[in-house]
């Protein structure tokens, strides 16, 4: 018991600081790299401004166009389900809100625990479905790299350990809670160096896309 408590305290203490530092510095470098590269001046006469269409695409691209939805319904629906499930569990579970409050002073109402546990279960099933899809769909199999499977494993571990801790399915409790915190920290550390960066850069990418098309008179 004392060993698992030490492990938990380590994940909450020094390891947490290390993870946050690597995440913050790594992400800052990544975003700086993008903005330092910038864009060349565009001399072509614009049909419209860039900012409006850019901002619109930042949001609208979250929803697939009807044709794409018809051609890839599994991809779209399962992607949506697990992203929303992950965000709900992350942001609306009481202990997570307490952690955010202790760090930032901000807080908001939580969802009841049974709801979160249901959402988490659905998320786990959806994540398994994405893995099966990745390993079986010809396109996904062809374009997948080691990184895709590594990132999947880490995200899955975060959700699974959280679910195991909630149901007290591993003893002693400090061990499973420590595993949950550690896997979340590994995710933070990997974030700036893997496709997890999209959590932040997708909004930059979408803006550039919307701006480029918008300038030519098309809302992308």
């Amino acid at each position: 018991m004392s060993g698992s408590m030490e492990f938990l305290l380590w994940t909450k203490g020094p390891m947490f600081d290390i993870a946050i530092a690597i995440f913050a510095i790594g992400l800052l470098v990544r975003i700086t790299e993008i903005f330092m590269l910038g864009r060349k001046k565009n001399f072509a006469e614009a049909r419209a401004g860039e900012w409006g269409p850019g901002f619109r695409t930042m949001f609208t691209r979250t929803v697939a166009d009807p044709g794409t939805f018809q051609r890839a319904p599994f991809n779209v629906v399962v992607g949506w389900v697990w992203h929303i499930g992950f965000l709900m569990a992350l942001l609306l579970f009481l202990p997570h809100i307490a952690l955010i409050e202790s760090l930032t002073g901000l807080s908001w109402p939580a969802l009841p625990n049974p709801v979160i546990s249901l959402v988490t279960s659905v998320t786990l099933v959806a994540l398994i479905a994405t893995l099966v899809h990745r390993m079986t769909h010809p396109v996904k199999r062809r374009i997948s790299t080691v990184e895709d499977y590594l990132v999947w494993a880490v995200v899955f571990a975060v959700v699974l350990t959280g679910w195991l801790a909630y149901y007290r399915l591993v003893n002693p409790y400090p061990l499973v809670l420590g595993m949950h915190i550690l896997s979340a920290e590994i995710m933070l550390i990997l974030l700036p160096f893997t496709k997890l960066t999209h959590i932040f850069t997708t909004f930059i990418a979408r803006w550039y896309n919307g701006a480029a098309f918008g300038r030519k008179g098309v809302q992308s």
Partner: peptide, 19 residues
């Protein structure tokens, strides 16, 4: 350039582009 860096940083290998 910046857009290229943002694009490659964001790809999650979902394969929707093939569709």
């Amino acid at each position: 350039d910046g857009p290229v860096a943002a694009f490659f940083s964001s790809c999650v290998h979902c394969g929707i582009c093939a569709q």
